[in-house]
Write a protein that binds this DNA or RNA. Structure first.
Lengths: 212, 212
DNA sequence: GACAATTCATACCGTGCGGTATGATAATAG
DNA sequence: CTATTATCATACCGCACGGTATGAATTGTC
C-alpha cells in the first residue's frame, strides 16, 4: 500500500483510446467506493458502471487495493487545490476574510461527493491509514496553515495563539458538517451554519456582531 | 431496520445459561463490528470469537443486520450515560467547569473503543443512517444540551448565543479528536489538547489565561 | 430423574466475491 | 497492410460469505 504522490505509475505513454478507458474506470471506481465503501464495492460493479470488462480493470491496476489507492490519489489531488488560499489573499476586513473562509465550508457541506469522501476517509481509516494520512496532508494541513499564517500576519487582531485559533475555527465548522450532514443531525438538531459562523467570528475577533 | 430504544426485544425471560451466551455474542459482535466494519465482519468470525456455534447466533438474532442493530443499542445505552452531566453540577468557577468538560473529551481521545465507535458510526452512516441518528440522539444531543443549559444558567458569563457557543466548544474538541486520533494527524500535526482547551476557554470566557 | 429447550458439531446450499483463461474483435503503430 | 496491443465476451476457479439442516450432547425446569 504505497500512497506516494509522486510516481502516479502508468498514466503517461498511453494511447488516447487506452487513457479514456482508464479515466472511465477511475471515475466509476471513485463513485462506487465513495458510495459503498471498500468492502462494499465489488469489481464487477465497478466494471459494469465503467462500461468496461473486468479484465480491462486488471490490465490497468494490479488488484482491488491498487485501484482504491489510485482513486484516492486522483481525488485529493484533483479536488483540493487552491480553493482555500485564493479567498484569503485579498486585503479585506478580517470579518470578511473569515466569512469567506466559512463559505468554503458551507460549499463543502452542500457537496455530496465531499460528504461521501469524508465518510469513506473516516470509515476506512482503520483499514487504510494511508488514506487518512493523505487526507490530512493534502486537505487539513494546508488549510490549517493558510489560516494560521493569516492570523500570524495580522498581529492587530490580538490573536494569542494563531494555530490554536485556526483549529478552533476550522474544527467548529468541520464538526458542524460532521454532525449536521454526515450524521443527519440537521433533522434532529437544526442549526444554521451562518449563525455558527457569526458567533465564531465574533469570538475570535472579540467584537460584537450586528446580528443577534 | 428499527433502532428503537424501548423494546429491546428478547433479553428478559431467558435462562441464565441462555443469557450468558447472548452476552458473549453481543460482546464479540461489538468488538468485531467496530474493528472491521459491517461488511468486513463475517458471522463465522463473530461466532468463533464468542466461542459459540453460528446457529446459536441465529437463534438469538434474525440475521446479520439484526445483530448489528442490537449491538449498537447495547453500546450507546451502556457507554454514554451521565459521564457528562456529573462533572458540571458542582458550583465551581466556570474555568474549572469547562476544563472538566474538556477532560471528558480527553478521556474519549484515549479510549480506543470510542475511537473505533466513531469510525464505525461515520463509516456506516450511509448504509445505516439509523445508527448515526441514534448516536446523535444519545450522545451529541444530550451533551450539547447540558453545556447549553450551563451557559443559559450563567448570564454573568455574557454568552450571547449559548447554543452556538456549546457547538463551538464541543465541535472544536470533537474535531480535534477526529483529526489527531482517527485520521492519525498527531503524527503529522502534533498539538496538545490542553493547549486547545486553554485557548477555547479563554475565548469563550473572554479572559486571559495564565499559560502561554 | 424426566422432559423440553438450548447449544453443540458438522455438513451443506446458493450466491457473489476477487481474480484468471481463452479466443475473438477492434484500435494503434510502423 | 501488417503486426501488435488493448478491449471485448464468456466462462471459469477457488473461496468465503450469509444462512440452514440434522442429530447428538448439554442445560434448565419440575
Amino acid at each position: 500500500m504505497n500512497l506516494s504522490l509522486s510516481h502516479s505509475s502508468k498514466k503517461e505513454d498511453l494511447s488516447a483510446y487506452s487513457k479514456a478507458k482508464r479515466d472511465r474506470i477511475v471515475k466509476a471506481a471513485l463513485e462506487t467506493f465513495l458510495q459503498y465503501g471498500y468492502k462494499g464495492t465489488s469489481m464487477n460493479r465497478v466494471a459494469e458502471r465503467a462500461g468496461v470488462i473486468k479484465q480491462t480493470i486488471y490490465s490497468h491496476f494490479n488488484d482491488k487495493e491498487g485501484l482504491f489507492v489510485a482513486i484516492i490519489e486522483s481525488l485529493t489531488l484533483e479536488h483540493f487545490r487552491g480553493q482555500f488560499g485564493e479567498r484569503i489573499a485579498s486585503p479585506e476586513a478580517p470579518e470578511t476574510v473569515l466569512r469567506k473562509i466559512a463559505e468554503v465550508f458551507a460549499d463543502r457541506q452542500k457537496d455530496k461527493s465531499y460528504i461521501a469522501l469524508m465518510r469513506t476517509v473516516v470509515g476506512e481509516s482503520s483499514r487504510f491509514p494511508e488514506l487518512a494520512r493523505l487526507y490530512v496532508n493534502t486537505v487539513i494541513k494546508p488549510g490549517m496553515k493558510i489560516l494560521t499564517d493569516y492570523f500570524d500576519a495580522h498581529p492587530e487582531l490580538n490573536i494569542k495563539d494563531p494555530e490554536a485559533c485556526a483549529r478552533i475555527f476550522c474544527g467548529s465548522l468541520v464538526s458542524y458538517i460532521m454532525t449536521q450532514e454526515i450524521l443527519y443531525g440537521k433533522e434532529i438538531l437544526p442549526f444554521r451554519m451562518e449563525r455558527l459562523a457569526d458567533n465564531l467570528i465574533e469570538l475570535i475577533l472579540r467584537r460584537s456582531s450586528k446580528r443577534n
